[in-house]
């Protein structure tokens, strides 16, 4: 049975359209693929990441952790749940009868994606910082200068007649742009509500 919460005397503000759009974008996010990628060479190593999982492929061989896969699935389900709540809450905002439930649902879900996005970018930034200090931490015989989050460079190292040059590319994908848009619209939806 659907819980019925009424706030008599408080008029409906109409459908929360930013919330509706944000909800739909959030629902699409788990199906849009990775948010960030790191490529060494032309595909010698491909590392893709999103809050829904990480994938590592070295010379075409995939390496994965079951726990990361299951946790990625958990985040996917949570994001779908948040998107659904945001969509339902934003639509219910147009009714007087369920206005309070709508407020509860939108307030709960509106900023969640933004936090997820910030946590993801912060984790990537920490990864970039650690990777840039890897030569000092691991005592590598060559300096390692990688871009922070976005960019391309080339790592060169040489020992005893062997020289290796590795082009490095890292960057965000279109799915990340959709996530940013959805997070911003969620923020607007929260304020609107």
């Amino acid at each position: 049975m659907t819980p019925e919460i009424r706030e008599p005397g408080k008029p409906s503000r109409g459908i929360n359209w930013p919330g509706v759009i944000a909800g739909l974008l959030v629902l699409a996010l788990p199906f849009l693929g990775s948010w960030w990628r790191l490529i060494l060479g032309t595909g010698a190593l491909i590392f893709t990441a999103s809050p829904f999982g990480v994938q590592l492929s070295i010379f075409g061989e995939s390496i994965h952790s079951p726990l990361v896969w299951w946790l990625g699935l958990a985040v996917q389900l949570c994001v779908l749940y948040i998107g659904l709540l945001l969509l339902i809450g934003s639509l219910l905002a147009g009714t007087r009868r369920y206005a309070a439930i709508a407020t509860l649902l939108v307030r709960f879900s509106a900023r969640k994606l933004l936090w997820l996005l910030l946590a993801f970018v912060a984790a990537l930034f920490v990864f970039s910082v650690l990777a840039n200090h890897l030569s000092e931490l691991a005592g590598l015989p060559f300096p390692l200068h990688l871009p922070y989050l976005v960019g391309s460079t080339s790592i060169a190292a040489g020992v005893d007649g062997l020289r290796i040059t590795i082009p490095v590319f890292m960057g965000f994908t279109r799915a990340f742009t959709v996530a940013v848009l959805a997070a911003l619209l969620g923020l607007v939806a929260g304020e609107y509500q």
């Binding site: 010698a44 062997l162 040059t165």
Partner: peptide, 11 residues
């Protein structure tokens, strides 16, 4: 060239 990684060997 191994998948974009360039190795140069000299003897």
């Amino acid at each position: 060239d191994v998948s974009g990684i360039e190795l140069e060997l000299e003897s």
